[in-house]
């Protein structure tokens, strides 16, 4: 992983609208350095997922800008996949492939030196090593969530973006997530979109979103 002090994530006057009325994120300014974890909190529709998608370079904001800097080098949105790992409920895997095959493909596509070893290490970290040869089609939602975490950790990025990482997980799974986040946050930067009190507690810093977003009835 990259040296901790050199990781910085920020946003300036960040706004994103869906259609004419719904606002995902509104006029947001923030800046966070590694190491550590930041809890991104707020009611449903306040823009937590939108913010992570913008930071990951998957969504272009309606206004404002974001910056992701690692080791003094700024990464444009389209280049950010190299320096961050994203866990989101929207991420699905190839069901006809095993867990290992999915991760080996991702490692090969990322150009990692030892795809098989990277996949095995990532699966070990999230407690899926014993199920690595099973096809994803037979995975429970909790196992898929663990696989998402393994996918995000695969290339050992300096930045982790986690969108409700504890969802679909049993207590053992949530404990594993907290453990991974705590270990990762000691060296890198974790942005954790959640409203779960236990997950919020992991983070020393907090970014509260109050935008009137998609899920806001007002």
């Amino acid at each position: 992983m990259t040296e901790t002090a050199a990781v910085r994530v920020g946003g300036s006057k960040l706004t994103h609208r869906y259609g004419r009325r719904a606002t995902g994120v509104h006029d947001l300014d923030f800046e966070f350095d590694a190491p550590g974890a930041v809890a991104v909190t707020g009611p449903n529709g306040s823009g937590k997922t939108t913010l992570l998608r913008i930071l990951a370079g998957l969504l272009r904001p309606s206004a404002g800008e974001t910056n992701v800097s690692v080791a003094g080098r700024d990464h444009a949105p389209k280049q950010r996949r190299a320096v961050l790992g994203l866990v989101t409920p929207e991420l699905e895997f190839y069901e006809e492939f095993t867990a290992t095959e999915n991760l080996v493909f991702a490692a090969e596509a990322r150009g990692l030196a030892s795809p098989a070893r990277a996949a095995a290490t990532a699966l070990e970290r999230v407690g899926l090593a014993s199920r690595s040869a099973e096809r994803v089609a037979g995975f429970s939602s909790g196992m898929k969530q663990r696989l998402r975490l393994a996918f995000a950790l695969l290339h050992e990025p300096p930045i982790l973006l986690l969108d409700e990482p504890g969802s679909h997980l049993d207590e053992a799974g949530r404990e594993a997530v907290r453990d991974v986040v705590a270990r990762f946050a000691a060296r890198g930067l974790v942005l954790l979109a959640t409203n779960e009190p236990e997950e919020v507690q992991i983070a020393a810093r907090r970014l509260e979103l109050n935008g009137h977003g998609l899920g806001d009835p007002s």
Partner: peptide, 16 residues
């Protein structure tokens, strides 16, 4: 349809 496009977008550019 199988919602795997996001996985591809996270490991490769659209051109790739």
């Amino acid at each position: 349809e199988s919602r795997t496009l996001l996985l591809l977008r996270l490991v490769a550019s659209p051109t790739e």
